[in-house]
Design a protein around this nucleic acid. Structure first.
Lengths: 192, 192
DNA sequence: TATGAGCCTTGACATTTGTCAAGGCTTTTT
DNA sequence: AAAAAGCCTTGACAAATGTCAAGGCTCATA
């Protein structure tokens, strides 16, 4: 399954065979079953984790104990909690598995050492954070200015495959509405 | 006004006098009056801009022509449009001045060359992007799971000084509610 | 095959928020 | 000083969303 990560890297930058071999030597593969946790609230997240296969979700529990989904991670995405990773603080988020998954993982220190040794890897990672930041801003944009219907359409457009892989009530959670509201919006005739 | 930026840099990393002199030599100062634009929709943003004094806001116009405020930038914050900067695409956001401002600016190429030459600067910038990303996630969290009252309290807690510098209707816009709703939430007796 | 859990929808009703209109107050501009 | 613009609030009503309860359907498991 490392080859999936290898292809990802090659699509984002140019790496020599030595680079790739070195990266692989520091990696380890983790197979995860449906419903299994990758990270639980209270633990400190100390890894870099690339999803080679499957589907995961990151969520936290709000004051009322309701699950709020922040992110879905499928093939070619990363999973984890950057805040916990960067600050070394206990995580407030849970990550569990929606579809059996294979994850390419690195310990934090190992990965950061790799970034020092391989400038191209460092560049790829920085670009990733940049893009994640831009994507987060799009989501803020959507959250504060779209109607529920617009949020839903936007989600379908951005993540058409997730529509068929993830239950609707989780999409509702991701969008910040109740399952009932999403259901009603879906059944409404499309207006313009 | 460069000294404000200098102090910022020194608080985030360690720089030699040569580093700082080099950085200053590539910078230029821009003074901006209230209501003036720093960036207008349609233009490509090609700078790095650090606010040494004053207050700016980033906003875009939604489908109905309503201003949606994405960000306020005061002293020791950055202003600009990372999406336009990174992708070279025309910006969809406007940045204008709420309080007369002084901004330390760099052309994109100059600043990125500086990052190449001064690894410490590069580190500071990468850390900044990381933190911005984490902050953006907090805002998504707030947007999808907080009530209006909670959003308002959260804003006050995070940005107490902005409360006294920015009109309420702009805070309402930032939070994604109408000025009327914010006004009502403010006048309600606090519940728990 | 039977059982139960999970998922989606629908209805009725309460609550929140938006919309429109108006008024008072302060600050800026003329 | 007068006029205008901007800001905040309030009221009345409409629209959107949440809450609670129920039912049917599919799918996994005993």
């Amino acid at each position: 399954m490392f080859d999936v990560f290898q292809q990802y890297l090659q699509s984002k930058g140019s790496f020599t065979q030595e680079d790739l071999a070195l990266i692989q030597s520091r990696s380890f593969i983790k197979k995860l079953r449906r419903k299994q946790y990758l990270l639980q609230e209270g633990d400190v997240w100390k890894y870099y984790a690339f999803v080679a296969k499957g589907c995961l979700r990151s969520y936290y529990l709000d004051e009322k104990g309701i699950e709020r989904i922040m992110k879905f991670s499928v093939e070619n995405w990363w999973a984890g909690d950057r805040e916990s990773l960067v600050n070394g603080t206990p995580s407030t988020t849970n990550i569990d598995v929606l579809e059996d998954a294979v994850v390419v993982m690195f310990k934090k220190e190992d990965f950061e050492a790799l970034c020092q040794q391989i400038p191209e890897l460092n560049k790829v990672v920085n670009t990733l954070v940049h893009r994640s930041y831009i994507a987060a801003n799009h989501r803020i944009h959507a959250a504060i200015s779209y109607t529920t219907e617009e949020k839903y359409r936007d989600f379908i457009e951005k993540y058409p495959d997730l529509m068929n892989r993830v239950p609707l009530h989780m999409i509702a959670s991701y969008l910040g509405v109740t399952p009932e509201t999403l259901s009603r919006v879906r059944s409404q005739p499309a207006k313009k």
